[in-house]
Design a protein around this nucleic acid. Structure first.
Lengths: 162, 162
DNA sequence: CCGCTGTTCTCAACGATTGTCAACAACGTG
DNA sequence: CACGTTGTTGACAATCGTTGAGAACAGCGG
């Protein structure tokens, strides 16, 4: 986790450099992302930001998030949890996703291991490798409810077999 | 190893074994999946199936697809392409996704390579590992014409490949 | 033939996200 | 500090993928 909090100056530069105004909304959103929510959904960012700025519009959050993503300051992720998440970690890394609570955690994988045989690729030019480890996080495992009947997950999402 | 077409008998057994009726819709959907569309979206399946059975409802397709997924006969995938895809390949494998045309191809990865340090996991119990290699397929690289907007006219799933 | 039960169909609703558009606030420059 | 350009907001509508709710239906046992 090298990228912790960015200074207000950096923050300002980031926006200014692209001709974007440094509005309090943008500052707040950016700060929320870096200070607290590392894999937040737009909703989550909005909820958090609304505490400090009650008039904050969800529309603005989406817009700013997209702007930041377009600038390469954050990365938009689709982890199959229903909504996009925005990652402030720009370093190469992968994710652990808890199927139960939906929490997301970064994990560094030696992607060099994942070498694909040229022959297998058959001309496919890989530009990025997204890995999602699904499972159950420690918290959920700890507070595992016992009354959950083993009803086959009918309308569950992304049911992967063993 | 390629699970090609399943015989009508197997097909019947699959449904019957779970107490589901072998309706023409289900048969058709199942056949479409195994015969042609290996990573189809519900829409795609519906489009194909509608050719043979014009009254086929999209709702039924979704329902049947979910049923099949619940039975473990197909796997629901979220490849970040906007909609779920349903994979008939039950063997452990990963996917190559072309960012341009959206085509999906299977690829076998020695997932044993992807060893995660216990310490790093911090109690997270990994149950599945989904890897998506994004990039550009050979076809798109070959016909890299900028005048053609990347709009797959018919099915989102182009031919398996050259 | 009747009714039961599982299926399918139609249509409406949902969640996430974006478009629009008008009124208004405010950033950044000079 | 004034001004012009941008950004924000609010109030919806619209989109896409997907699911819910019932009604209509088909097949089987009685």
């Amino acid at each position: 986790m090298v990228d912790s909090v960015k200074s207000p100056d950096e923050l300002t530069d980031i926006f200014r450099a692209r001709g974007l105004k440094v509005t309090p909304q943008r500052q707040l959103i950016f700060r929320v992302l870096h200070d607290e929510l590392r894999h937040a959904t737009a909703e989550a960012v909005h909820a958090r930001a609304s505490r400090d700025m009650p008039t904050m519009s969800l529309r603005t959050v989406y817009q700013t998030l997209n702007d930041l993503a377009a600038m390469g300051e954050i990365v938009q992720l689709d982890l199959g949890t229903g909504s996009s998440r925005f990652d402030t970690n720009l370093d190469a890394h992968q994710h652990l996703v808890c199927a139960e609570c939906g929490s997301v955690r970064d994990i560094v994988v030696d992607s060099a291991d994942i070498e694909l045989a040229e022959a297998t690729l058959e001309g496919f030019a890989v530009s990025s490798t997204d890995i999602v480890f699904r499972g159950r996080c420690a918290s959920c495992a700890a507070g595992a409810r016992s009354d959950v009947p083993s009803t086959p997950p009918l309308s569950e999402e992304t049911a992967t077999h063993a």
